[in-house]
Deep mutational scan, measured.
Amino acid sequence: LETFPLDVLVNTAAEDLPRGVDPSRKENYLSDEDFKAVFGMTRSAFANLPLWKQQNLKKEKGLF
């Protein structure tokens, strides 16, 4: 999966995202380093959170 810089994904409308980016899964296009910096946890820890908590975190970080 291709990764993009944080500033390309945060608070970006679906139509302005790079081609192929799923707007409902912007976090998947962050590098592992950016993911950890944004969410303060690994991808696996994030995946283990309840869906509502994942969505709330994504909203807080501008990735929803």
Score class of each variant (00 low, 15 high):
14 A>R: 09
40 G>F: 08
14 A>D: 15
54 Q>G: 00
17 L>G: 04
2 E>G: 13
12 T>P: 05
47 A>F: 09
25 R>S: 09
17 L>N: 04
35 F>S: 00
32 D>G: 06
22 D>C: 06
47 A>L: 11
54 Q>K: 08
43 R>Y: 08
38 V>E: 04
62 G>E: 04
21 V>I: 10
52 W>I: 11
29 Y>F: 07
58 K>F: 01
42 T>W: 05
33 E>W: 08
59 K>T: 12
19 R>C: 15
32 D>W: 06
5 P>G: 06
26 K>S: 03
32 D>M: 07
54 Q>A: 06
59 K>G: 07
18 P>V: 01
31 S>C: 07
24 S>T: 15
1 L>Q: 12
11 N>Y: 07
59 K>H: 09
36 K>M: 15
54 Q>S: 03
51 L>F: 12
47 A>N: 11
5 P>M: 04
13 A>Y: 08
39 F>I: 05
11 N>Q: 08
13 A>E: 09
43 R>M: 06
17 L>K: 01
3 T>F: 15
51 L>M: 13
16 D>P: 03
39 F>L: 08
27 E>Q: 03
6 L>E: 01
37 A>C: 10
27 E>N: 01
25 R>F: 11
37 A>K: 13
46 F>Y: 08
17 L>H: 04
49 L>G: 00
19 R>H: 15
49 L>E: 07
41 M>R: 02
5 P>K: 05
6 L>M: 08
47 A>E: 10
40 G>V: 06
41 M>W: 03
56 N>A: 12
9 L>V: 02
25 R>Y: 10
6 L>H: 04
26 K>F: 03
30 L>I: 08
14 A>P: 14
60 E>D: 12
64 F>M: 13
39 F>S: 00
15 E>C: 09
12 T>K: 09
58 K>W: 02
18 P>F: 02
48 N>T: 14
6 L>A: 05
45 A>V: 13
13 A>V: 08
33 E>T: 13
15 E>G: 08
36 K>I: 14
18 P>T: 01
21 V>L: 07
61 K>H: 14
24 S>H: 13
25 R>A: 09
30 L>P: 01
19 R>V: 15
17 L>E: 04
8 V>N: 04
15 E>W: 06
57 L>M: 12
37 A>Q: 12
59 K>Y: 10
16 D>Y: 06
35 F>G: 00
64 F>V: 09
16 D>T: 04
45 A>L: 12
29 Y>L: 03
19 R>I: 15
9 L>H: 02
30 L>F: 02
38 V>S: 06
19 R>G: 15
9 L>D: 02
62 G>W: 04
36 K>R: 14
7 D>G: 09
7 D>N: 12
16 D>V: 02
38 V>T: 12
3 T>M: 07
10 V>Q: 13
14 A>H: 11
33 E>Q: 12
64 F>A: 15
2 E>K: 14
1 L>H: 15
64 F>P: 04
61 K>N: 14
46 F>P: 00
61 K>R: 10
29 Y>M: 03
34 D>K: 03
27 E>K: 00
34 D>S: 05
6 L>D: 01
12 T>W: 09
43 R>Q: 08
10 V>I: 12
47 A>Y: 12
6 L>Y: 15
52 W>H: 11
41 M>Q: 05
47 A>V: 14
47 A>M: 12
15 E>N: 10
31 S>R: 08
54 Q>W: 00
40 G>N: 15
56 N>R: 12
52 W>V: 11
52 W>D: 11
13 A>M: 08
45 A>G: 09
4 F>S: 02
28 N>V: 11
55 Q>P: 00
45 A>W: 08
48 N>M: 13
17 L>I: 07
34 D>I: 06
51 L>I: 13
42 T>N: 12
1 L>C: 11
38 V>P: 00
42 T>Y: 06
27 E>F: 02
51 L>G: 10
53 K>I: 14
20 G>W: 15
42 T>S: 12
58 K>C: 04
3 T>I: 11
55 Q>F: 08
21 V>M: 05
53 K>Y: 12
30 L>G: 01
52 W>T: 10
10 V>F: 06
2 E>L: 15
29 Y>Q: 03
16 D>S: 07
27 E>P: 03
15 E>Q: 09
36 K>Y: 14
19 R>Y: 15
40 G>M: 13
44 S>G: 13
4 F>I: 08
26 K>I: 15
18 P>D: 06
5 P>T: 07
25 R>M: 10
61 K>T: 10
19 R>K: 15
27 E>S: 01
29 Y>E: 02
3 T>H: 11
40 G>C: 13
24 S>D: 14
56 N>G: 10
29 Y>V: 02
60 E>R: 09
23 P>H: 07
48 N>Y: 10
11 N>E: 06
8 V>K: 09
58 K>T: 02
1 L>K: 13
32 D>R: 05
5 P>L: 04
40 G>K: 11
21 V>K: 03
50 P>G: 05
23 P>I: 07
16 D>C: 14
20 G>I: 07
62 G>Y: 05
56 N>C: 13
30 L>M: 06
27 E>R: 00
17 L>W: 06
11 N>R: 05
55 Q>M: 12
55 Q>C: 11
57 L>N: 03
13 A>G: 08
25 R>C: 11
59 K>A: 10
53 K>H: 13
15 E>H: 08
36 K>Q: 15
24 S>L: 15
21 V>D: 05
31 S>D: 07
46 F>Q: 00
37 A>W: 12
44 S>D: 13
21 V>T: 04
34 D>G: 03
35 F>E: 00
